[in-house]
Design a protein around this nucleic acid. Sequence first.
RNA 1: UCCCCUGUAGCUCAGCUGGCAGAGCAAGUGGCUGUUAACCACUGGGUCCCUGGUUCGAACCCGGGCGGGGGAGCCA
Length: 463
Amino acid sequence: MKRLTVKEIFALEPDGRSITVKGWIRTKRETKAAVFLELNDGSRMGNLQCVFGEAEAAANSGEIARAGTGASVSVTGSLVASPAAGQKLELRAESVSVIGEAPAETYPLQKKAHSLEFLREIAHLRPRTNTFGAVARVRNRMAFAVHQFFQGRGFQYIHTPLITASDAEGAGAMFQVTTLDLARIASSGQEPDYSKDFFGKPAYLTVSGQLNVETYCEALGSVYTFGPTFRAENSNTSRHLSEFWMIEPEVAFADIGDNMDLAEDFLKHLVTVALEDCAEDLEFFDKRIQPGLLESLRKVISSPFTRMSYTDAVKELEKSPGSFEFKPYWGCDLQSEHEKFLTEKVAGGPVIVTDYPKEIKSFYMKVNEDGKTVRAMDVLVPRFGEIIGGSEREEGLEVLLGRIRDLGLREQDYWWYLDLRRYGTTPHSGFGLGFERLMLYVTGMTNIRDVIPFPRAPKLADF
RNA sequence: UCCCCUGUAGCUCAGCUGGCAGAGCAAGUGGCUGUUAACCACUGGGUCCCUGGUUCGAACCCGGGCGGGGGAGCCA
């Protein structure tokens, strides 16, 4: 008999049809008159309750004994309306066969709640829990929604490289990629000769696809990348990973206003899709992980994001100098506490902050007429702050060269990037969205290590 | 990298002033008229993170190390 998923089964009428379902046992409850197996196969949040009457329980007693929490089973029976509260459907089971046992003495997952910290230590089994099953389903839907959003607007998906021989991306410490035996070279007291290395020069894992994707933007108009990026920063926080997925759109002939509109539409689209297509999983997060999540997400899509310049944001902060550990002043980088204040106290929702002092932003951002600020825009959200960083890019060759020199960067490292300004330059804008930060935002989870299947962070590369 | 907290049963934790190792849940066994975080009873279960020290005596105090969490910085 064809296997039906639990999700498929819950779309059927309880007409007594005979079905077979396969999955993993979540809990088993036994009484004298009946045995209840809760079966989950990951297709949806909820389980299928398989009920064995006294006769069926007796006929299957051997297999039922082996069907403990975590065991994989195949159950056949008839689909009926449930006579008890708690579920609309259930399987009146006739037979069960255990495919793989999960001995209770050693199986780490129990039919009780576990801490997220404990589950992190068994990352290979945690997708079998409600929480991580829901995270995986939402993550899948969000990844698809990213492509749907951009493809629906005529953007081209560009695959930017993961290995780069340029250390000029300027977004943080990089992991080196080499085939040289560095330990042996060091013990012999010599310096590595990178002309002998695989690429003939030092190479690294990318920290951003932006510079590369700009080249395709200046040919195809509207483009985006969506792929893994790597940061070798020694940052130990609930908001940072060493390996994370980033979405970077880049649009030609677009200014910072267009960029803000795109970012806002993008976030609202993703939240809308989550609310519509992941309702069951989001209800779980709202109930068990982050009370108020659904309400705040609905609010996000129903009202425009607050937009303010950095200068105005600092003025807002200066009105409440006593509420901060770090006193805000014009020219300071916004601290976490400042970002939280702006989103939670001033705006009560997402805030787009623009036109930052050029000293605290990257070389490629377009300098404003005032000569002091750049057309940067950061989208800040309640709970954890920056979720998007972007800007209008400097399209003038001389201004860009000046910025590179002022910051002490080497012009020759950017020769091909500068060519984009030498030949057919255009205004253009783009931003980066950390996919895992989006996941934190949409699920209400609070640690970024819990929204990626196998987190990579300092001292953490198991599984 | 810095600051704070923390490490005791499979899990979550308690363990007072240094003096016999504890609870709840989970598991096992039995019971229970359809349960659903099932319920009731009983039973088994320990490298008190590692290491060095202080002490008659250390889970507890001190030094060092390792792991986990929260916050900060860097950022997405």
